[in-house]
C-alpha cells in the first residue's frame, strides 16, 4: 500500500546564545532560515527536512531541530 507522510519539525532558536554568524543560514540546504538583524529566524518551516546541518554547524549551541 502507498503511505503519504509529512514530517513536521520544530526549530528552537535560543536568542540568548545566537551570535548571528550566519553559518546556519548559509548551510541550510532548503533555505529555511534567514537573518533578522543579528539574530537568526525561521522564514520557511515547511521547507525544513530535518537534516540538522544548522545545529551541527552552529558554534553557539543556539539552534536545534526536533521532529514532532
Amino acid at each position: 500500500m502507498a503511505v503519504a507522510e509529512k514530517r513536521i519539525f520544530r526549530i528552537e532558536i535560543d536568542d540568548r546564545l545566537c551570535k548571528g554568524c550566519n553559518l546556519c543560514v548559509d548551510f541550510c540546504p532548503t533555505n529555511v532560515l534567514t537573518m533578522d538583524g543579528n539574530l537568526v529566524v525561521v522564514k520557511d518551516l515547511d521547507a525544513c527536512n530535518g537534516c540538522q546541518l544548522c545545529d551541527n554547524r552552529c558554534p553557539d549551541f543556539a539552534i536545534q531541530v526536533f521532529e514532532e
Binding site: 551541527n56 558554534p59 553557539d60
Partner: peptide, 13 residues
Amino acid sequence: LPHIWCPGCGHGI
C-alpha cells in the same frame, strides 16, 4: 553559555 568565542568561530563546533 554563551561562550566567549566570536561569531562564526569554529571552536564551538
